[in-house]
């Protein structure tokens, strides 16, 4: 009766000892790994720090100035390169009946200029920009101000569509106009591929 109990206890003790060693080794391994990781983090942080300094150094405005002058054809922005939506000329009514049209081709530029002058004055809802654009050829002789280059491009591209298919949906025209206004790069690319 006594012997099996002793054996079991002895067995348990050996098992506990083995477990203890196992855990101890695992802890020691994990600690080594933690130290290693900490070291690595410190090293990476230092490296990031150095790289940040280097990034800032390489981005010296003076250096970039020189590089852009040598390799790029970019120049500082000028005031006349800016335009806003309000600067686009307004469209006469959809069905032009000159006698009743409140916004005739002659008065449109003046109104556009007024709208432009008031900050935040956007074209009214009845005359969306896109449709105003499709009517652009009519307004051609009296542009209210020097139009931005991309706007002129847009009108040239859109006008044939507008004349050939009068039923062209407003949405397509709006898309085109928005692309012309905001997607400056996109229109350039198209131009290049042509």
């Amino acid at each position: 009766m006594k012997r099996p109990a002793t054996l079991i206890i002895f067995g348990l003790a050996v098992f506990a000892g083995a477990m203890l060693f196992g855990v101890a080794f695992e802890v020691s391994n994990l600690e080594d790994r933690l130290t290693g990781l900490n070291k690595e983090i410190t090293r990476d942080r230092d490296a990031i720090h150095v790289l940040r300094a280097e990034w800032s150094y390489l981005n010296q405005p003076e250096r970039l100035d020189g590089l852009s002058q040598r390799h790029l054809e970019l120049r500082p922005l000028e005031g006349r390169q800016f335009s806003d939506i309000a600067a686009l000329p307004m469209r006469p009514n959809r069905v032009p009946t000159p006698t009743t049209d409140p916004v005739s081709a002659e008065t449109a530029p003046a109104i556009a200029a007024l709208v432009n002058a008031e900050p935040g004055g956007l074209p009214s809802a009845e005359t969306p920009i896109a449709t105003a654009l499709t009517a652009k050829p009519k307004l051609k002789p009296a542009a209210p101000r020097r139009p931005a280059r991309n706007v002129r491009l847009a009108s040239q591209r859109i006008s044939p569509e507008a004349t050939t298919s009068t039923a062209a949906s407003d949405k397509a025209a709006l898309d085109a106009a928005l692309r012309a206004i905001f997607g400056n790069t996109a229109s350039n690319r198209e131009g290049a591929s042509r």
Partner: peptide, 17 residues
């Protein structure tokens, strides 16, 4: 003329009222 675009100031039409 070079810094205003960077500072987010839009040019205006000088002839506007």
């Amino acid at each position: 003329s070079q810094a205003a675009p960077l500072l987010g100031i839009a040019p205006v039409d000088e002839t506007a009222p």
